[in-house]
């Protein structure tokens, strides 16, 4: 299936007009806002990366308060919240990747061959139980 890239046009006139209109409105707002010509910028001789680290972990004693960069807020609580959210995302991805057959969760990465011979057993990390009644119901079968 090697085909060249094809543009997909058509039936997108109204969303296109809407997106361009939104861009026009926002651009008009931005161009009418009087931004200063020169950015404030960061002072020389202060490492931006280490300042980010101090702000992430509330190391306020280490922050350069005398420079113009020292007004960064502390972020330790939000850092921990983001860590918890990433853990929750990992768990949710695992839950979504599992499939349930007859109320029992089947591991997402079990390998079952699609053959119909009786010798096909799913891969089991505990050596495989010998009861083997309906083991071929899990895994990837479509």
């Amino acid at each position: 299936m090697t085909n060249g890239p094809q543009l997909r046009l058509g039936e997108s006139l109204l969303p296109g007009i809407l997106a361009v209109a939104l861009f026009g409105v926002m651009a008009m707002i931005a161009l009418n806002t009087g931004f200063a010509d020169e950015m404030v910028g960061f002072p020389e001789g202060i490492s931006v990366t280490s300042e980010i680290g101090y702000a992430l972990f509330d190391f306020t004693a280490l922050q350069s308060t005398e420079g113009s960069i020292g007004n960064t807020e502390p972020f330790l609580v939000s850092f921990l919240l983001v860590a918890v959210v990433l853990d929750a995302a990992l768990d949710a991805a695992l839950v979504l990747a599992k499939r349930e057959t007859e109320g029992k969760p089947i591991a997402a990465l079990s390998s079952v061959s699609t053959g119909d011979s009786a010798s096909t057993q799913p891969a089991a990390t505990d050596g495989g139980a010998e009861d083997g009644s309906s083991r071929s119901s899990g895994g990837e079968q479509r």
Partner: peptide
Amino acid sequence: LGVVLLADPWH
């Protein structure tokens, strides 16, 4: 624009 206009999701 290529992301939103190309037909194939892989492209």
